[in-house]
């Protein structure tokens, strides 16, 4: 028995020693009760759809979403016409055509989200030298995940007494180092939700985090559903193997 305990202890050590989280100079984000948490977690599609609106109308002005295509929005509950309508709001440069000319056309479902800035240089020029990161993977690329993103979006504050902020810098409780070039944008700008939800700062932060969680891991629901089936199968299979093992070994003294 103690040997089995040792194996489990070793596994536990591995699991606990795994993530080496290191974030100094920032408060640990409080855990939120996301609908996508847990073994049976699913995306809150209504919230994520509102989050898309927040992204399009506020975040998109600085942040790209390069790994997400408009067609992917089908998984978020939009039908084909809605996807086409969303895509058509964006213009992109295509070509060359048969005359060798580049031309502008509206985006289609098969295109990836068209960024506001054409390239990193343009983005830096438009943001006082800072480069707003791409948001496709932001939830997976930050320690703390969705909890961090939500805490960050609602964590802008006045700097503590005695702390001088340079011009064009803002103070955030949860940002590593606290000072950053992004303003408290959800306080400045607001959206008008098509479903009538009141667009409070916290609501918009919640919705856009739901959207970004989906954008970072669109296959999450498929993954968890498959996982339940796989684990259920394996439990039955393993129980069966254990029964057969008992039977085979029944005549052996050991």
């Amino acid at each position: 028995m103690w040997k089995r305990a040792c194996v489990l202890a070793a596994l536990a050590c591995v699991a606990l020693g795994g993530p080496a989280s290191a974030s100094e100079g920032a408060t640990h984000p409080p855990a939120q009760d996301w609908e996508f948490n847990g073994l049976f977690g699913t995306f809150d599609l209504a919230s994520a759809q509102r989050g898309l609106q927040v992204y399009e109308q506020i975040c998109h002005a600085c942040h790209s979403l390069n790994h997400v295509a408009y067609r992917h929005l089908g998984e978020l509950g939009f039908n084909e016409d809605e996807v086409a309508a969303i895509a058509a709001n964006y213009q992109l440069s295509d070509g060359p055509d048969e005359n060798g000319e580049m031309f502008d056309r509206p985006a289609e479902g098969s295109d990836f989200f068209v960024p506001f800035f054409a390239n990193e240089e343009a983005a830096r020029a438009g943001n006082g030298g800072a480069y707003p990161p791409d948001l496709s993977l932001i939830v997976k690329a930050r320690s703390g995940g969705a909890d961090y993103i939500y805490a960050f979006l609602t964590g802008f504050e006045e700097p503590p007494d005695g702390e001088e902020l340079p011009a064009g810098r803002y103070w955030n409780e949860y940002f590593p180092g606290h000072q950053l070039a992004m303003p408290n944008i959800l306080d400045v700008n607001t959206v008008e939700y098509t479903d009538g939800t009141e667009p409070t700062h916290a609501q918009m932060a919640w919705d856009v985090t739901n959207f970004l969680a989906w954008a970072a891991e669109p296959q999450m629901m498929e993954r968890k559903q498959m996982g339940l089936k796989v684990v259920l199968f394996l439990l039955v299979f393993t129980a069966l193997m254990y029964a057969v093992k008992r039977k085979v070994w029944a005549n052996v003294h050991h």
């Binding site: 299979f237 193997m241 254990y242 093992k245």
Partner: peptide, 8 residues
Amino acid sequence: IKDMFGSG
């Protein structure tokens, strides 16, 4: 069979 159980 013991390996089958273990791998399960």
